[in-house]
Design a protein around this nucleic acid. Structure first.
Lengths: 348, 348
DNA sequence: GGGCTGAGTGTGAGCGCTCACAGTCGTTCC
DNA sequence: GGAACGACTGTGAGCGCTCACACTCAGCCC
């Protein structure tokens, strides 16, 4: 029982300590650790026992140095506080663990391409094997395109056209479906509270909304632009409340819809009696709004998972061949009680 | 311009490539990289130019191997989808970046001590220098206590009594303050929708609520226990709605308060006219509930930041001396319009 | 019997960096 | 004039691991 051969004694045990204790060479220990088939069962047992006895843990830096692999992926996220990014991150992490990868995160405060660049650089410096970017702004998209191909990158939740592989929700079809739902209810047209113009998702939802209106031959009122927050929905809602032609509003996300609901409630306007309201995202709280919100469900967790898998594909199969894949996940409208046929308001 | 000395050619440049190009030794390059004071300005410039020209990036694994430092901290989180954990994670990441540390995350699905153990082990295997745990369940607390001192650990947002250093919100004083607010308004007593019994925060909030009632000589009705979700608040709210003695309810978080609000609304009970409702957390949406919610603000981001700093202290100053520190952050009641003097309901 | 196989194991080099140490200058002092 | 010093730079070893290769020894064939 010398400090050399037992745990607790001196410094942290290394592979040769295990080898000595098990009476084999360091290479055999390495083989056991890496599940090499060419190790006799009895030897393997002996090595495993020694490992346990010493509480030996392989040094990941040494391994990374020689294999040139870290089994770590990086995630660049815009605001991990929002429900969407938080859920995607969660999905990514779960999937990564399943594939025995680590996840290292960097969040960026602002949406300019410099920040995204820096974040990716930082991750690159830490030797991640690939990067997932949750940064659905048009500007970030540009940054990614410029990034250079020495590090596999996948955009999640949205992303630049082409250039970079992406896993995204089909915002357009979701927006289209919920707008059509409102139209089918008998509304002459549907107003829209849009997300920030520099978000790809916001743009796609506007496009889907416009397309549904065009399909129905309805005129498209000028959309009002918010910033995803309940506050902006509230402020915009105050304006909408004074317009007696409004009978249905599609909000680009549930939080803005919540603010709108609040504004309408303060103005004494009934939902859905006077005005129907629909959102987008289906956050867990949406069914407990007053009234429960009709919205479009997107499975953020699934998005994250798919994104990670796409990234792993690229990491393991080497550089791109052909044009980058683009996975679209279909969102699903969820009808609750915030939408109904137009009622007491005078038609627009 | 051979492949040896320029980027783009063959393999990734290493330190000696830079040294050769700059006409110095590898050690001088290392000195420049590590801001050693004893390098002549002209030499430094020459090295930096060479680094830029080759697009050289130091190999972090090699550095970690020899310095035995990774500048990485791990975060173990229970459910990164919830607002609280997501915000703390954000705060941690921001702070870590400020101190030039990386953040690696592992989230656990279930709250048993095995999962927490495994997560910490995983992180340990990746050679993080310390771990922050966002897992405010009593069971996790036990796991941490058992963890052994070879890796610095800090609990964030809550944590076991003693044993492990922690940064937490003073749940008890927050709950006490908001309960007193309700009592001061003239309510005879205050009902409570509690969080899950195995969450430390939930327990502390119950304690604060009880203390405030006791201070006022009010009787404490049996608290109802939910699971933090709006759904559970709704279901419990349905029960509360049938009890005509209820005039004020303090919910253990804002989401449950939202569900309660929904249930009361369906039951035709006015808030705050018939029943006053208060929450805890002050999520960004709370001021847009119907009606805007009186609640207790806790600054999750700050919590994360403080947690990281505490961890860094322990990493840099070596093993514990004395008993683990415990930082309490004071939460702040925010009065909005969901609370008022008792009104039309018959007194209990 | 010699040569082949393949299973099981050991040897030595080297990944890219930092650390400890050892220079080599030019300056200053007595 | 030489010792002493500080500023700057170079040399060699070695961190803990994996990789390529070499080796040993059964078992088996012709």
């Amino acid at each position: 029982m010398t400090a050399q051969t037992t745990a607790g004694g001196g410094r942290k045990p290394v592979m040769s300590d295990v080898a000595r204790l098990a009476g084999v060479s360091h290479q055999t220990v390495s083989r056991v650790l890496n599940d090499s088939p060419h190790v006799k069962e009895a030897t393997r047992e002996r090595v495993l026992t020694a490992i346990r006895e010493l509480d030996y843990r392989p040094n990941s830096a040494a391994r990374a140095l020689v294999t040139n692999r870290t089994r770590t992926v990086g995630v660049v996220s815009f605001d991990t506080t929002l429900y969407g990014p938080a859920s995607m991150l969660h999905g990514i992490e779960q999937a990564a663990r399943g594939h025995d990868y680590f996840v290292s995160i960097v969040s960026v405060r602002t949406l300019d391409s410099r920040s995204v660049q820096d974040a990716v650089d930082r991750l690159h410096g830490q030797a991640v094997e690939g990067v997932l970017v949750i940064a659905p702004q048009t500007s970030a998209a540009g940054a990614l395109a410029a990034l250079g191909a020495d590090l596999p990158i996948v955009a999640v939740g949205s992303g630049p056209r082409a250039k970079v592989p992406a896993v995204a929700v089909d915002n357009e079809s979701g927006a289209r479906a919920v707008t059509r739902h409102l139209l089918d209810l008998g509304h002459r047209t549907v107003h829209h509270l849009a997300g920030p113009a520099n978000w790809l998702d916001a743009k796609a939802r506007v496009a889907g909304w416009r397309a549904a209106l065009a399909d129905a031959g309805a005129s498209a009122p000028e959309p009002l632009t918010g910033d995803w927050s309940a506050r902006s929905g509230y402020e915009l809602g105050l304006r909408l409340a004074t317009d007696r032609s409004v009978t249905a509003v599609f909000c680009a996300n549930d939080h803005m819809a919540l603010g709108l609901l609040r504004a309408l409630s303060e103005a004494g306007i009934a939902v859905p009696g006077d005005i129907s309201v629909a959102g987008f995202d289906d956050i867990p709280e949406a069914s407990f709004f007053t009234p429960p919100l009709t919205t479009v469900r997107q499975d953020f967790g699934e998005l994250g998972r798919r994104g990670l898998e796409l990234l792993l594909d690229r990491i393991e199969s080497g550089p791109t061949d052909g044009r980058p894949p683009r996975v679209l996940v279909a969102p699903e409208p969820v009808v609750r009680s915030s939408t109904a046929a137009p009622g007491r308001r005078p038609a627009g």
